[in-house]
């Protein structure tokens, strides 16, 4: 039962996120995410401490289990935040799908898609977020770097792209081979 504590923690994290988003809509979204992840982490920690204090500690290296559950929770919480919440927040594919869903069975031509969602909207939304998050600053009409956490993540991703795709960008990698 204790082995499922990462899943229980993930459930607590999602529930906390819904509650926080509903009760404090004015909070910055990043703060709501951090509070929710901490809430889920608290549940995992509590369950881990109960495991350590209970009869199950006859198992060898009980702290090793708790550490593994903590790591598992972090991996699941990362997946929830970046693979689910952040996708709903910023993913272009999902936004395009929602536009197509709204259009119904008639669908949309490329021009109609671009009327509803286009590169200008995408770039402006990112610039707003980057400036609000302190990563970019607007000086004399030009965007300049201020804080480098996002840039470090971008460079790490470029490294993984070079390793897996042999190119720093999807456009340098070429299309996958035809089936």
């Amino acid at each position: 039962m204790f082995a499922l504590s990462p899943l229980v923690g993930l459930g607590a994290c999602v529930a906390a996120h819904v509650i926080v988003s509903r009760l404090a809509p004015a909070w910055p979204r990043a703060r709501g995410v951090v509070v929710s992840v901490l809430a889920g982490g608290g549940v995992v920690l509590t369950l881990g401490l109960r495991f350590l204090g209970g009869p199950a500690t006859a198992a060898s290296a009980p702290a090793g289990y708790v550490l593994a559950w903590g790591l598992t929770y972090l991996a699941l919480a990362y997946t929830y935040v970046f693979g689910f919440f952040n996708v709903s927040e910023t993913a272009r594919r999902l936004r395009l799908l929602v536009e197509l869903l709204d259009a119904g069975p008639r669908g949309l031509s490329l021009d109609e898609v671009l009327g509803a969602y286009n590169a200008r909207m995408i770039v402006e939304a990112r610039l707003r977020r980057l400036v609000a998050g302190g990563q970019l600053a607007l000086a004399d009409g030009r965007y300049v770097l201020r804080w480098s956490l996002g840039l470090s993540a971008a460079k790490l991703l470029v490294g993984i792209k070079r390793l897996l795709l042999r190119a720093p960008s999807e456009f340098g990698a070429g299309p996958p081979p035809p089936r």
């Binding site: 082995a3 991996a75 699941l76 997946t79 996708v87 970019l136 996002g150 993540a153 991703l157």
Partner: peptide, 30 residues
């Protein structure tokens, strides 16, 4: 569970490898 968690986390990261993220691209361009 730990293996599944690591694979899911990597799968999440892979979406930004397979398709360039506009946010990351803007930061690199600047």
């Amino acid at each position: 569970l730990l293996y599944v968690g690591l694979v899911l986390a990597f799968g999440t990261t892979y979406s930004a490898v397979q398709a360039d993220s506009p946010t990351m691209s803007v930061l690199l361009a600047v």
